[in-house]
């Protein structure tokens, strides 16, 4: 990212929303906030993940998910959940008009999907409210 790139919101506020998510959900170990074009905005982690890499992956996967929905005539907005054998990855849209973002939550396989979704949605709402 370059200096010409607009910095959206206060990174400190974003980070506090991400940290709160980790506190709310012990099974979540990393969370990354990214721009929809794949640049990392903020992150919080108990366990290190390659945040810049995850930011790019998250933007791609969410865009492909949205493309699939459009193709099926089911709107163009949604979330992506990947349930792996050793963990879960949840990608949520953060629909800010100023700069749409993607929230990526990495959690253990013991995370209950409903709790993960709920906590992540809380986090998205906090980020939106901070704007």
């Amino acid at each position: 990212m370059t200096l010409d790139t607009p910095l959206i919101g206060a990174p400190g506020l974003h980070e506090s929303a991400l940290t709160e998510l980790l506190e709310l959900l012990p099974q979540a170990h990393s969370v990354v906030l990214a721009q929809t074009d794949g640049f990392e905005v903020a992150s919080a982690m108990r366990r290190a993940v390659p945040a810049a890499r995850l930011a790019a992956l998250a933007s791609s996967m969410l865009a492909l998910g949205a493309a699939a929905l459009r193709e099926l005539g089911m709107g163009g907005h949604g979330n992506v959940l990947i349930e792996g054998t050793d963990g879960k990855l949840l990608l949520l849209e953060v629909p800010l008009a100023s700069q749409p973002l993607v929230l990526a939550v990495v959690a253990g396989e013991d995370a209950i999907t409903g709790s993960l979704l709920w906590a992540a949605r809380q986090c998205v709402q906090r980020i939106i409210n901070h704007q």
Binding site: T5, D37, F39, S59, A67
Partner: peptide, 22 residues
């Protein structure tokens, strides 16, 4: 099928949208 997202890397290229999936 398109996966365009808002381009924020204006220093790299000034176009409005960029492909992030394929």
């Amino acid at each position: 099928i398109s996966t365009e997202a808002r381009n924020t890397d204006i220093a790299q290229h000034s176009k409005a949208q960029t492909t992030v999936g394929f």
